[in-house]
Design a protein around this nucleic acid. Sequence first.
DNA 1: TTTAAATTCTACCTAAAGGTAGTAATTGAT
DNA 2: ATCAATTACTACCTTTAGGTAGAATTTAAA
Lengths: 137, 137
Amino acid sequence: MRLNSTSQYAIRILSYIARKQDEHILSAHELSEALNIPYKFLTKIMTKLVKAEFVESVRGRDGGFRLKDDPEKISIDDVLNLFNDSIKEEQCLLGIGACDTHCKCAMHDQWMKPKLLIQKLFRESSIKDISKKGSKI
Amino acid sequence: MRLNSTSQYAIRILSYIARKQDEHILSAHELSEALNIPYKFLTKIMTKLVKAEFVESVRGRDGGFRLKDDPEKISIDDVLNLFNDSIKEEQCLLGIGACDTHCKCAMHDQWMKPKLLIQKLFRESSIKDISKKGSKI
DNA sequence: TTTAAATTCTACCTAAAGGTAGTAATTGAT
DNA sequence: ATCAATTACTACCTTTAGGTAGAATTTAAA
């Protein structure tokens, strides 16, 4: 049970941009080096982030990427949703279709607490929160 | 973020066996039908469960599977570990190698609480617990 | 106007997860 | 002894995630 690596990368990319964009615009080259993400794979992720309007790109020489909005307006959950990696409301831990209070799976009740906590974490953590200096990205 | 379907299947299989094995031994055919798991894929999972000694098999006519031990001795975490799907201690939410109190990733602190809760849930829930009647498997 | 540094687009490759097919081995019942 | 119902084994197929290659496009600067 883990996040898929594309969404891990995306969160780290956005955090890194948030952390550095006041100094200079971030090129794919710099992001790839700094975050240790394969260059070609990173550019692929960037186009998704651009199309989803989390970042905007500046093309051509001296181009790069910057956040389109304030980093506090992007939640972790927003990013995960882009890569179908969030925890959905009806999602059953054991994969038995729709699982709700009327028709519970065997883990339903025990899973509620951690699930709600994770959803809260993902929804309430913004890119700004996790881009604060002092921890690795 | 979800369990992979092989471990979901495995948990449901073990729970179903726990629930029914006092009535009769469970054949792959019955398990496949009852749990709606593709027959051939199920038999593949069963051989792993046999080799890991969670279940023992009876070969030949009138054969099938039964739990090797008491269902309360098998935790969800045991099952997940067999399929590399548990949450490991050092496992970093953002995938940045080893992530501990000395060298934290940007999500480390916030992730601790949900992570510990999940680990506790997986370790303290046994197959017996979730095999109790009244919920779907 | 040419060049170099950048993003974008299209297409492909590789590895892992999920799933299938066929056959061999085992065993209780006839 | 044969048969039918079962698990075990080996090998393959399909889909998805992760990753790569190369050429097209854009743009600031020389």
